[in-house]
Design a protein around this nucleic acid. Sequence first.
DNA 1: GTGGTCTAGACCACG
DNA 2: GTGGTCTAGACCACA
Lengths: 121, 121, 121, 121
Amino acid sequence: MIQIDYRDPRPIYVQVRERFRELILSGVLPPDSKMPSVRELSSTLAINPNTIQRAYRELESDGCIVSVPGRGSYVCQSDAALLARRRELTERLRATAGELRAIGVTEEELIATVKEGNTHD
Amino acid sequence: MIQIDYRDPRPIYVQVRERFRELILSGVLPPDSKMPSVRELSSTLAINPNTIQRAYRELESDGCIVSVPGRGSYVCQSDAALLARRRELTERLRATAGELRAIGVTEEELIATVKEGNTHD
Amino acid sequence: MIQIDYRDPRPIYVQVRERFRELILSGVLPPDSKMPSVRELSSTLAINPNTIQRAYRELESDGCIVSVPGRGSYVCQSDAALLARRRELTERLRATAGELRAIGVTEEELIATVKEGNTHD
Amino acid sequence: MIQIDYRDPRPIYVQVRERFRELILSGVLPPDSKMPSVRELSSTLAINPNTIQRAYRELESDGCIVSVPGRGSYVCQSDAALLARRRELTERLRATAGELRAIGVTEEELIATVKEGNTHD
DNA sequence: GTGGTCTAGACCACG
DNA sequence: GTGGTCTAGACCACA
């Protein structure tokens, strides 16, 4: 479910956070489903529990999960989180398209690239 | 020409490097034009010369500029650099579009966003 | 009567305790009235009996209820509990008003806020 | 400037964060002023640097400070942070007033308490 | 069992 | 020097 890539320059807690955010916002992990416990995930991934906890903490402050001490962590997708994520990604798409256009890529090529993803995901 | 944004989480040397890369790859800084000297730029931006030096060093290893000891640095846009940049940005575009599609954004909206940049930049 | 809010960061036993304290000190639950049994309440709220037990234990040590083994728990509002609660809340009111004043809220606004509650509760 | 109270049930990082938030939002620490470095403060207070860093990290995500790796942390009071704080405190004031009224405190007494703070702070 | 806090200490990147 | 990440391991409160 979660894969850590040690060649990825991003910190581990960011990789874990982003991966879960994708899974939650895309609906793979539905609301009210249980997250793996901090200890369980940390031993599965061979990562320090503190690192996992930091990822969970940030997911909680983003409104993606709720953590209940003594009971576990649960998916809790908030509209605000979904909207914020959408805004962030849309802006990145716009900026990336702009940079590609600046180095000479045509609009047709851009649109082709965007459509490409459709077959993969 | 170069603007440092202290709210940008990226290190300063990365901001400088990326900004120059855009200017060079997009043709604003044409091949053989002279780069500002390290000392000059560092005093203009009130930034440690080491930081500028590092940005220049990486631009050189990317094939974007050449530094001639004692004479300064010159733009030297290599096809390899342009191609690598293009590949990197295209992949980012594809991935971002995929994520947006995963959270329910339609293809029409994606294409509209991509076209949007056209009027701004 | 009792509502658990899982988004509330406070432990469940604290939520239960505080809610009962309000009900008792405000007179909604009059002296000598019977508290729901631990088992009953724990099954109604789908909460571990230990958690309810702890809330009751603390209410008892605060002088808000008395538990009679084998017969149940009864409301027993002590003047000391009422006074302590009043002191605690008054201090919190004073401190909060002070902080608001520090960030520029006028006395008129403070008083308006305090009066506001009158219509709601 | 910062005082840790080990009898305060709140975690240390919360005490540090809240104390700085007060100082910043009330203008005692003006925008662009330098925060003590993580290491400096941690040794002054005899607290682990990680704990201080967590407080700083949360202040940063609240828009109260900005941390620049290699350069230090700086006050950066955002309007959003001020507004959020004001809303939070106003709600607490309203709720506390409501509870006091519920246990029989008169409006006159409430207003007197609110005015009281004026002479202290 | 769960999540949460804290410490001690290492290492890295940045300036 | 600065902030940031990560680990190992302890301890606590809660259910």
